[in-house]
Every structure is written in structure tokens, then in C-alpha cells.
């Protein structure tokens, strides 16, 4: 199987997992969720094989254009869903996270995204490509968990559910925020310093990472020092993920700058 058929197989399996997860959620059969998990794990292994094949074929990290980075982000999201989501004991988390995964994979599969393997431009020829992008995207996958938990919080009925979702969002931020800071900002600065000779240039991508960082810093400060919990916290977490999404996606299509790869 080649990379694109492996990727399509993963797409189909994720879509299957999505259906099973939602069926389990709406039919209130938690046991069915296991079926969703199995499909997600099989999908992830196909997806992993696709990423490995692409890396082998291109000779560089599999996230140098929008198609590749969408694929990697959705891969990280499934991984986080399987490892981190299982301990969350929130039945609605997996279906909605999988919905985001399927949306990302569908976007990556769309004809809008060029899928050609292209050789690396000089600026990207660095091992910092691996560190900067992978750590940042994994951090953003955790922000997605906080986002889903925040949205579910706003629609949750019982206090018990709300408490779990609030705690889940916080735990996701507690992992995502340090990863995003390290991968996005610190590794980004180190690499910018090596490649462009300056660690900070107020490029729109940089500024939007900083904005994302500020929103999550706001989340922590309002929570820890001012005792915000629940609804207001959920809204800040949602805003944080949207800022991260804009940093990742919007900046490239709406604003122009140095960081024109992805």
C-alpha cells in the first residue's frame, strides 16, 4: 500500500470510529465506545504507516506543507484521544474529538491541499523542524481537548458532569500549555535565531502564537488566583483553542509574513 491509500484507509477507519462513538453516546451504551476505540487504534496504525512512508519517501519530517501538517495534527489528536482521553471518563469527549479529527483529515484529503512531496527549501533544512513543529502540534492537540471539554461544559446538564469537564479542560491545558510554550515559542525562537538571525521579528505567526499564549496564561491566572471555574474558564479555554487554530491556519491564509510554509 502506498502512502495515499494508507491515509485513505485511516480516514475511513476514523469515520467509522466517529459513527460508532456517536452511536454509543446517543444510545447510552458505553460498551460500544470500545468499538470506536478499536477502530481509532487501527486507523492510527494505518495513519502512522502513512506518515512513516511519507517521511521515507521525502527524506524529511512529515510536516512541511499544509497537507502534511494537517495529517500530523490529526494523528497527534487521535493519539491524545486514545492515551489521554481514556482516563478522562467523559463519554462525550471521544466522539467530539473524533469529529475534529475527521474534519481535519477531510480537509487534508481535499483537492485544495497539494499533496506532492516537495524537497525542502533551505530555511526548513534543520532538525529544529522536527522539534518545533511536532511539539507545537501535540500541544495544540491538547488545546483541542480543552476546547471540546469547554464546549461540553457549556452544554452539560449535571453538576457532576460539569465538575469532570472543568477538571478535564484544566488537565489538558496543564499538558498543552507547557508543550506549546516549549515547542511553539521556545523552539521557534531558537530556530528563528539560527535561520533568520533573530529570535523574534514580530512576524504575524509569532505574534499570534504569543496571543494564544496570553489567552492560556489568562486561563491559568483567572483560575488559580481569582478562583474562576466552570463557565468562564470554559469560555477562556475555547477562546485559547480558537486563537491556536488561527495561529495555525488563519495566519497563513489571511495574513502575510516570513513564516509562509505552514
Amino acid at each position: 500500500m502506498n502512502e495515499s491509500s494508507l491515509f485513505s484507509a485511516a480516514f475511513a477507519l476514523y469515520a467509522g470510529a466517529l459513527v460508532v462513538y456517536f452511536a454509543a453516546l446517543f444510545a447510552r451504551r458505553e460498551g460500544w465506545g470500545r468499538g470506536g476505540l478499536i477502530l481509532a487504534v487501527i486507523g492510527l496504525s494505518f495513519h502512522t504507516a502513512a506518515l512513516i512512508l511519507r517521511t521515507a519517501a521525502s527524506g524529511h519530517a512529515p510536516f512541511t506543507n499544509m497537507y502534511e501538517s494537517l495529517s500530523f495534527l490529526s494523528w497527534a489528536l487521535v493519539l491524545v484521544l486514545i492515551i489521554f482521553g481514556r482516563g478522562a471518563r467523559v463519554p462525550a469527549l471521544a466522539p467530539y474529538l473524533m469529529l475534529i479529527v475527521v474534519a481535519l483529515v477531510a480537509l487534508a484529503s481535499s483537492p485544495l491541499m497539494p499533496k506532492d512531496v516537495t524537497p525542502l527549501v533551505p530555511a526548513l533544512q534543520s532538525y529544529w523542524l522536527w522539534l518545533h513543529v511536532s511539539v507545537t502540534l501535540v500541544g495544540e492537540a491538547f488545546f483541542a481537548v480543552a476546547f471540546v471539554a469547554g464546549l461540553l461544559y457549556l452544554t452539560a446538564g449535571t453538576e457532576e458532569k460539569k465538575e469532570k469537564l472543568d477538571a478535564l479542560a484544566y488537565r489538558a491545558v496543564a499538558v498543552g500549555f507547557p508543550l506549546f510554550t516549549l515547542g511553539g515559542l521556545v523552539f521557534g525562537m531558537v530556530w528563528a535565531y539560527r535561520a533568520w538571525g533573530r529570535y523574534w521579528a514580530w512576524d504575524p505567526k509569532e505574534v499570534w502564537s504569543l496571543i494564544t499564549w496570553f489567552v492560556f496564561a489568562l486561563y491559568l491566572h483567572t483560575r488559580i488566583v481569582m478562583g474562576w471555574k466552570g463557565k468562564r474558564s470554559a469560555i477562556v479555554a475555547i477562546a485559547g483553542f480558537l486563537a491556536a487554530l488561527f495561529t495555525y491556519f488563519g495566519v497563513n491564509y489571511l495574513l502575510s509574513g516570513l513564516h509562509s510554509y505552514v
Partner: peptide, 24 residues
């Protein structure tokens, strides 16, 4: 005051956004 910090977070964020909307 942490309230000041929160106000500053919001102000710096809004100002930074403005700077990405107007080419510099």
C-alpha cells in the same frame, strides 16, 4: 493586583492582534 495583570493580558492581546491586521 492580579486584576491588573488580567487587564494587561487583555490589552496586550488586543494591541498585538491590531498589529497583525495592519501591515507593519
Amino acid at each position: 493586583s492580579v486584576k491588573l495583570a488580567i487587564v494587561l493580558f487583555i490589552l496586550v492581546t488586543l494591541a498585538s492582534i491590531l498589529g497583525t491586521l495592519i501591515p507593519q
